[in-house]
Simulated scan of single mutants.
Amino acid sequence: MPSLIPRPPFSLIFSSRHRGHLFASFLTLKRIHITTTATTTTAATSPKIIVIMGATGAGKSRLSIDLATRFFKNSEIINSDKMQVYHGLDITTNKITIKEQQCIPHHLLGVFDPSQIVINPYIYRKLASKTISNIVSRNGLPLIVGGSNSFIYSLLTKQFNPKMDVFNGPDPDPVSSELRYKCCFIWVDVCFKVLNRYLCKRVDEMLDSGMVEELKEFFGSGEYLRVKRDGLGRAIGVREMEAYFSGGGVDLEVYDRGVRRVKVNSCELAKRQVGKILRLKEGGWDLKRVDATEVVRRKMTAEGGGSVAELWEEVVETSVKIVNQFLEE
């Protein structure tokens, strides 16, 4: 298997933002490789972990930061987004920024060289398991946060077979409800109609905040030809905008078509993610649904302001109650 040691991303490392990500990645990798006797657990000694799930754009990262900074100060966050494990394309993959992390330790975020390795569920299980053990050894509370339910399933199920597929196909394999950790699942949910509108708006905001320039450099530097197509090459925005940037980045019709595809595929991703969450729930996973629909709806209207903050506080308070009850059990 290729080396798991990351190397700096192409020219992006020269910005302060990406230097920060690289430093955080180095710290994360150092923690992963610490030798610990707690790498395996039994039912009697299984650590407690918090898992924040949901579709892209639902508010998972924001909730994790609120929980970690305001209520559970010993928390450390483990990324479970399959595109965000790689360094590079921070805006396109919608990574949480260093500023937004608010000094909360983040693991497996922007760590791996996308030209050297593809992080599949089996590899993720091994890496995240070690990270959990290291956090627990420091008396920390692990928070698993991200939209890749295949990563979450591989990490948490007691017996994981990488050849089995519990999510896809006309006759998927049965979901195992036997978990190897004591888990508190928070499912941040937003109704599809509202979420789809928000995701389309978010794409426009990402394009305006530097996504176009980021992709221009990605294609122009030749990095696109080096990344693994089954890894970062699958990030939404890469394939959709390839024709535009490969053609010199001048055809506005091709640009508009690419942007429409980014929006459609973002909405399709959200739909698949929720479908997998429902599959886990039907398979016996005890998922606590927290509805953030009204928060997202208000963010897109003139009603915003204080009402959004108040509604978000309700989401946070509900989540805190769920976590407190879990930790007290």
Rank of each mutant, 00 (worst) to 15 (best):
E329S: 15
C103A: 14
A128C: 08
D171H: 10
G169S: 06
P2I: 01
G249V: 04
L141H: 02
V190W: 03
S209D: 11
T301N: 11
R138Y: 00
K30T: 14
K263Q: 13
R62A: 07
A55S: 13
G306R: 14
G59E: 06
G304D: 14
K82W: 03
F218M: 04
T28E: 09
R234F: 04
P172R: 07
S129N: 13
D189G: 05
M241A: 06
H21D: 11
V51W: 00
K48V: 02
V254R: 03
G304C: 11
F14P: 02
S80H: 05
K193T: 15
S75L: 04
W187G: 02
V254L: 08
I104G: 04
I186G: 00
S307Y: 03
E242R: 11
N79W: 04
N74E: 13
G20N: 14
L215Q: 01
I32W: 13
Y255K: 13
C183R: 01
V111L: 02
E313A: 15
K216C: 07
K271M: 01
I123G: 02
G233Q: 06
S115G: 14
M300S: 08
L127N: 07
S209H: 08
D204M: 07
R7H: 13
H107W: 03
S246A: 04
F185Q: 05
S266N: 12
C200F: 10
K126H: 11
A55I: 02
I78M: 03
M241K: 08
S129V: 12
N149A: 09
A309C: 14
G20I: 04
S3L: 04
H33R: 13
C183W: 07
F72Q: 03
M206S: 09
M300C: 13
F71A: 05
L29G: 09
R202F: 13
I32G: 10
A43S: 14
R239M: 13
W312A: 05
D251V: 05
V203P: 00
P6Y: 04
L141K: 03
P170A: 13
R298F: 15
F192S: 14
F245R: 05
A24R: 15
L207A: 06
E294Y: 09
Q159D: 15
I96S: 12
L141D: 02
R298D: 15
F23H: 15
C184Q: 03
G305T: 09
I78H: 01
E329Q: 15
L27H: 05
I5F: 12
G54Y: 05
L252W: 14
Y86P: 05
G146N: 08
F160W: 00
W187A: 01
V308D: 10
I32K: 12
E213I: 06
G222I: 02
I104V: 15
K60P: 01
N74V: 10
T36F: 13
I135P: 03
V227M: 06
A128W: 07
A43E: 09
I77A: 06
I135K: 03
Y86A: 03
D208Y: 00
L127C: 10
S16E: 12
Q325T: 15
V166H: 08
C200W: 01
V308W: 09
L252A: 09
S61R: 03
D66L: 14
V190I: 09
E178F: 11
P172Y: 12
C183A: 10
M83I: 12
A128P: 01
K30S: 15
Y255T: 06
L287G: 09
W312L: 11
F151T: 02
